[in-house]
Computed example of a mutant assay.
Amino acid sequence: MPTALRLFRYVAIAEACSWAGLLIGMYFKYVAATGDLGVKIFGPVHGALFVLYLAAVLYAARQARWSRATIVVGLVCSVPPLATLWFERRVMARHREPVTA
């Protein structure tokens, strides 16, 4: 697997995990009303990984020669929670090496 796609994959998974952490932190802050420590921790982490994901999409797109439509879908998938996992699976399935016997 080329380095750009490997980097993209790791960042997409990390971004989704940070989304999950932020959502859990928001639950404890706003629903359970037990404190905002989770938001204080995962907010900046998610923000940094969000920006890194956008850069990773553009870098992988350039290296793997993705179409403009694929790039747009990848960038849009940064907004809904955990959508980066769906996009990562879709892209990696297209770039997976065929299995030969």
Rank of each mutant, 00 (worst) to 15 (best):
58 L>S: 01
17 C>F: 10
28 F>H: 10
78 S>L: 07
63 Q>R: 07
72 V>L: 09
59 Y>Q: 06
39 V>S: 07
51 V>R: 06
20 A>P: 01
22 L>I: 09
93 A>P: 10
91 V>N: 01
48 A>P: 00
21 G>K: 02
15 E>P: 01
42 F>D: 08
84 T>N: 04
69 A>N: 10
7 L>T: 13
69 A>Y: 03
96 R>Y: 01
95 H>R: 14
8 F>K: 00
49 L>C: 06
15 E>W: 08
35 G>D: 08
14 A>I: 11
7 L>E: 02
21 G>E: 11
50 F>Q: 00
24 I>G: 04
14 A>S: 14
72 V>A: 10
17 C>K: 00
94 R>Q: 14
74 G>P: 01
95 H>N: 12
98 P>W: 08
59 Y>R: 10
71 I>M: 14
100 T>E: 11
71 I>Q: 12
93 A>K: 15
6 R>P: 02
10 Y>R: 11
64 A>G: 01
41 I>M: 09
6 R>Q: 15
42 F>M: 14
80 P>Q: 11
36 D>S: 09
29 K>W: 05
59 Y>F: 12
58 L>N: 03
14 A>D: 06
76 V>M: 13
48 A>W: 02
62 R>T: 05
96 R>M: 13
42 F>I: 08
53 Y>V: 00
91 V>G: 00
49 L>N: 02
15 E>L: 07
70 T>G: 07
43 G>V: 10
96 R>N: 12
74 G>D: 01
93 A>E: 10
7 L>D: 02
40 K>T: 11
55 A>V: 15
59 Y>E: 02
97 E>H: 12
88 E>V: 06
89 R>T: 06
18 S>Q: 06
35 G>V: 09
89 R>P: 04
35 G>F: 03
54 L>T: 01
5 L>Y: 08
31 V>E: 11
14 A>Q: 07
8 F>Y: 14
20 A>S: 10
61 A>H: 03
22 L>M: 11
84 T>H: 04
92 M>C: 15
66 W>K: 12
91 V>S: 06
27 Y>F: 13
50 F>K: 00
18 S>F: 09
83 A>M: 14
68 R>M: 11
58 L>R: 05
31 V>R: 09
86 W>G: 03
44 P>D: 09
32 A>L: 10
13 I>Q: 05
21 G>I: 09
14 A>T: 08
71 I>A: 02
73 V>P: 02
16 A>K: 02
81 P>M: 15
